[in-house]
Structure formats: structure tokens, C-alpha cells
Design a protein around this nucleic acid. Structure first.
Lengths: 364, 364
DNA sequence: ACAATCTGCTTAAACGCTTGATCAAAAGTG
DNA sequence: CACTTTTGATCAAGCGTTTAAGCAGATTGT
């Protein structure tokens, strides 16, 4: 049924004629050819600057002039038709609107695609399955070079069947049981970086407020936290790790728990949580970073850079995710070691972490 | 020079062959025709469900079955070629990445385009002029039905020359000296809504912290503020209006000034400013909304919905901007009264505004 | 029973472009 | 001077569709 429907035109009034007269009759190669008194073949040759084509200087100039005069634009559609392959890359995202993250992925993908002469076809599915199917169909029908399938937060995902009809790479998600190409953030690395920001400043008793909801990020960041502690020779204390809902309210609500723990620093699962935590801490009369060092995760610009004090955090490499996605798709990057490549989460140090003043002690 | 360059292929390795075998040899109509033992014309007729085509039930079924068997997908490129017009709509944005706003515009545009059977071609220029030219060229070459030219904040703009070659509409921006179609938020209306949130709760002495930087928003919101006051029979007091840089720091820094003013409520130019203001107010031991009612502007989800208390504000209709943009472009909406249509900014009431308790007095 | 009509399908041209094969004229060679 | 080569350009086929026009065979009207 659906496959049948996807073959037909959308059931809409198909007529939306241009009003701009210039748009009605695009200048074609034929007209240029006639104008310049040559054949279309010749025009094609000069337009494409074919190296092994032998065109007289005079003719070339004449053609170029005519092109300029007439305002000729090559018709990419026709070009694609004959070459068989389009220069499109599809990007289907599950949430363009809800978060600033998707924007970064689009941006990265688009920049990289551009570099290789490709153009982005984006579709937003807002998590809606039929919409997703239609979106993929549409891309397939436009004979895209491949599809980037992206999610707004790092998670496992099912691979829509239609994707298999072309090259594709998963972006910010992965398929647990398949060897599909994927590119995701390295959560473990990120957790380590975040924790190390704290360790470097001499903190030893470091809490980690993890998320309540299961996700690769939850496990990965925790592991990173543990690895960082271990590297620093600090014993892992399970008592210092607890969960909260990963938003502002969660962070605010975690303050009580946190203060019971006698720590000098805290690593929050994400920036939003840190934002709530700030509020709670301040309300208790505590100040940051003097009384408590805090680092977040995500580097959400709107928030992190402008909190008081600006929040030290770790950045999710969304832009890079998009860019690496198209590189993988086009085969300019080879996936090293397994089909899923992990991208580093770079630390972004701002002012929410100070030296540990509560104990000057450094273990050997 | 540039126009010449834009005619040629991007200077890159042009060969990025698909690795997916299924992608190499797309099934064509010819193959379906052969498989079903009919002509391509027939296949075309059944695929497109042409109403006035006379196809036998048996043949139709045979074709449909073959299509399914072979996994045929129509080639949209070829389709577009013959029909002369593509089903593309271009969207060039000056900042996809930097803000969550652009995402909403894209989302709205994409949804609406989809409804009419169109597909979005997006390009991010990040404010870079040559990139912008290339982006527009690329769209023109793909014979887009039209172009949406959008900016991430409401402002006047120059119209790139190439845009004139097709239908276009400005989104979130406008051209002061031209009658180009445009769709922008109604700042005056927004300012009025924001102020009225306060007025409705009985506030009479309402400050307005405007932006330091000139923009349609600055003037419009101020005017809206004045109109709302006037409607409520409150005299405008210039002393209650002052400027600050429109971000968190600006809001924070404005607290001193604000408190000198003896007001019960404040309307902030934007949410970020309100966020900083919250910090400053709390630091002074003041609580919201008891000691000060505050409303913001923009309805930046990440921020506004999760501040403590959640911020009452006014939403910028980004999604609608995108959607209305394509409607205008396709001619399904007619611009009423002048080429620039203004969209309402709906109020979003949360918990940062309480009743005015400082004075029970209501003027007649 | 014979023309008129209808039904079901095919033919062929066209859309704008690319490209290998050709070809005429100019230039180089012995 | 008769030849090969080079130069500068054209021819024509084809990319995957759509669609007006055409054409047999079946059905209908009288």
C-alpha cells in the first residue's frame, strides 16, 4: 500500500506556476548555441571546460559572451539525468525543530557536502514513521547519492527498510545488530574529559549526577567518569553517583542529594541539569566555583556560555557528526576499526570550575 | 568572474561512486515495461494513475506487480526534466547552526512545502556572501520553483541580485526599498502582548528593558509596549524604559537600574536577558514573581520553559514564518495589504508573572 | 451489415544536456 | 605535392520520463 502510494504524486493541487516571467522560460543551451552560431555540443564543451575538447579561442569567447548576455544557467536536472547520478545527498532528521542540535548536524553535513559538489536535501520527520517513509522515498526518487539518517540524541535505532536501497550512514545513532556505517559521539571520552577538567583542578571528591533515562550517553559518560578517576588514582565511590532527570528541574532537585555527599565538585549529565543545579546551589547560598565546581555536558551555547558563571562543559561534536557523516557516505573517509566511528567530545573550559580549596592535599 | 565560476562544476574530485549495488542500476521504466510485456507509455500511465488513460484491469495489475517485483522507483529527475519545472523549493539561511530559530523556520517551510508536493533544498551561508551567491546559483541551476531567503533575526536586508531570476520571498527579513514579498513577525503586536500579560495582572508601573542594538524588534516592541499601556490607560513614562545588551549579561547588569525605578514588573527585550535578570534579582534576595513580575520575548524553549520559575514570554512565530513563506511563494496565500505580511507573536504564559500585590489600586 | 464509437494499448517526439564518433579544413611532414 | 596529423567543430545517440496522436479490434447504433 504505502509503497504504492509513494509512487504517485502527493495528492495535492499540482499547479503552482511561477509568477516571475524570468522563471518561466529559462534560457537553454540551444538558445545560447543559436545566439553564438555554434552547436549545442560546442556550448556544452565550453561550459564544462572540458580539458580534451578543442575549442578555438574566438569561439569560446563568443559562447561565453552569449551566455552572459542571455543569462544562461545550466539545467542541473538534465545534467544529472544524463550522467545518471545526481549530486544530492539526503538528510533525514527526527527533530529539526525541537533542538539546536539538529541544526549543527545539518550545518556540518551541508558544508562538507558542498565541498564535494553535493547538495543537501533535508527532510524532517519529527519522529513520524509514515512521514519518514515518504521522505526516504522522495529521496530515492531523486536518486540521491546517499542518505544521512540522523537522530537528535545519541541512541540505538532501527534502520528503515527503504534505506537499504541506497548508500546511507547513521548519524548520532547506530544499529546494534547490523554493520551499518554510523558516526556517533564518543561518550566515554566525553565523560573522561569532563571529569578531568575537575581532576586537573585538584578535586578528589567528585560527584556525578547521571540521567535517569537509559541511553548510550548514560553508560558512556559514567564509564568515562570512572576511567578518569582511575587514571588519577582516585577510588571510585558509588555513593557519589546518583541519578536525576536530565533537565533544569532535575538539576535543581538534585541539590539536596548532592550536598549530603560532601564533595567539592560535580559533573552533571548535561548543561540543562547544571543550569538547574546553579539555581539550587545559589539558593542555598553557595557560590560557584568557590563552594562547588561544576561541569556540564553538551555545550549548549544559549545556556552554557551565558550562565553565571559561564559553565565549563564538554561539547557534543554535532557539526563534526554531520561532516563526518557525509565523508563516510562519499567514501572519502574510511571507517577505521568497525563500522561505527566515534568522534571526540572536546572540553570547553569556562569559569564554573576553580581549584579545589577545601583540601590542599594531593595524593602521591 | 563569479558568475563564470558558478557555471562550472565545483573544483573537486567528481567521482564518489556508490558502494551499494542496488544504487548502481536503478530499475527503469523500460525494464518494468519489458517485464510486464507492455510499452513504457503504458507503465507511465499506470504509475501516474492518469484519469483519462484507458488501461485494462489485467494490464494494470500486471504492471503494478512487476513494479513491486523489480522494486521500481520513478526517477524524479527525468520527470522534472520533461515537465520543465522541478518540485524543489530552495531555502537559503544565514545561520542554521548558531541558533535554534533557523531550525524552526526550516521545519515550517519543509512541512508546508511537503504538503504541496515540494521538497526543500537548504543552504546555509553563515552570512558569507560568496557562499550565498553559490548557493543561489546552485538552486537556480536546479530550477527550483522559488527561493526562501531567510535570516535568523528580523532585520532589513539587501536582495542578492540572482534572486530576481526566480520567484522568492524574504523570511524574517525585508527589503526597505522594494516591493519584494516578505513575511516577518509583528513586533508591535508582540510587544503589546508581552506588556498586556503584565497589565492583565494589575501591574501599572512596568519597566521595559529594550535592546541597545537597533533592529525592527527594538522599535516595534517599544511601540507595542506603549500601545498596551495606552490601551490600559497607563501614562507612558520614558523613565521606565532603558537599554541593555540583549543577552544574559545585559539582563544581569540591568538589575541595578531596574531597581532604581520602583516598578512591579518588567518586560525584557528577550528571554536571554530575562535569564540574566533572574540571576541578578535572586542575588538581591528578590523573588519572582512575588517581588517582580517578568516577561521575556522569543520563547526560547531551552531557556524559557525551564527557568525558575518558568518564564512567561511571547513566541516568535518561526515555524509559521517558514510555512507562510512557502505559501506566499506558491501563491496559495495572497499577501493582503502590501508585500510584507506580519505574523502574530502569541503570548506564552508561564509562572513569572503574578498579580500586582504592591498596589491594590486599579485606576477607573 | 456497415459506419461510428469506444477501448486498450503503442509510437514517437520532446525535455536539456553529454559524449563518443565523425568530419572538413588547416597545418605539418618527407 | 601527396600524405598524415592536428585542430575546431558538428552529428547523433541516449539519459528516463511524459503525452499527443495513432491504430487495431471490439462494441454499439440503425
Amino acid at each position: 500500500m504505502t509503497s504504492e502510494k509513494s509512487l504517485t504524486e502527493p495528492e495535492v493541487n499540482p499547479s503552482h506556476p511561477p509568477t516571475n516571467p524570468r522563471a518561466g522560460h529559462p534560457v537553454t543551451m540551444r538558445e545560447v548555441a543559436e545566439g553564438a552560431g555554434v552547436s549545442v555540443a560546442t556550448v556544452s564543451l565550453v561550459v564544462n571546460n572540458k580539458k580534451d575538447a578543442r575549442i578555438g579561442a574566438g569561439t569560446r569567447k563568443r559562447v561565453l559572451d552569449t551566455i552572459r548576455e542571455l543569462g544562461y544557467r545550466p539545467n542541473a536536472l538534465a545534467k544529472n539525468l544524463v550522467s545518471g547520478s545526481s549530486r544530492f545527498i539526503g538528510l533525514v532528521a527526527d527533530a529539526i525543530a525541537t533542538t539546536p542540535f539538529a541544526g549543527q548536524i545539518i550545518h556540518g553535513a551541508q558544508d562538507e557536502a558542498w565541498k564535494h559538489g553535493f547538495v543537501l536535501l533535508v527532510a524532517n520527520t519529527e519522529g513520524n514513521e509514515p512521514v519518514e517513509r515518504d521522505a526516504i522515498s522522495m529521496m530515492l526518487e531523486h536518486k540521491v547519492r546517499g542518505i544521512l539518517y540522523s537522530t537528535w540524541f545519541h541512541r540505538p535505532t532501527e534502520i528503515p527498510a527503504a534505506l537499504q536501497e541506497t548508500d546511507f550512514v547513521l548519524v548520532n545513532c547506530f544499529s546494534p545488530d547490523s554493520d551499518a556505517l554510523a558516526v556517533v559521539p564518543d561518550e566515554v571520552h566525553g565523560g573522561r574529559e569532563a571529569t578531568e577538567i575537575l581532576v586537573r583542578k585538584g578535586h578528589r571528591r567528585i560527584a556525578f549526577i547521571n540521567a535517569t533515562i537509559p541511553a548510550p550517553a548514560k553508560d558512556g559518560r559514567l564509564q568515562g567518569y570512572r576511567e578518569a578517576l582511575e587514571s588519577a588514582g582516585i577510588a571510585f565511590d558509588p555513593h557519589l553517583v546518583f541519578d536525576a532527570y536530565p533537565d533544569q528541574e532535575g538539576g535543581y532537585g538534585a541539590v539536596e542529594e548532592l550536598l549530603k555527599r560532601d564533595v567539592t565538585a560535580v559533573f552533571c549529565y548535561n548543561d540543562r541539569m547544571a543550569m538547574g543545579l546553579y539555581d539550587g546551589l545559589k539558593q542555598k547560598g553557595l557560590s560557584i566555583p568557590e563552594d562547588m565546581a561544576v561541569v556540564g555536558f553538551d555545550n549548549q551555547e544559549v545556556i552554557a556560555a551565558h550562565m553565571r558563571p559561564p559553565l565549563s562543559t564538554v561539547a557534543l561534536p554535532h557539526y563534526e557528526l554531520g561532516a563526518a557523516g557525509v565523508r563516510l557516505l562519499l567514501g572519502v573517509d574510511e571507517p577505521a576499526g568497525g563500522p561505527v566511528v566515534k568522534l571526540e567530545c572536546p572540553p570547553v573550559e569556562r569559569d564554573s570550575v576553580g581549584p579545589n580549596t577545601l583540601t590542599g592535599s594531593r595524593l602521591p
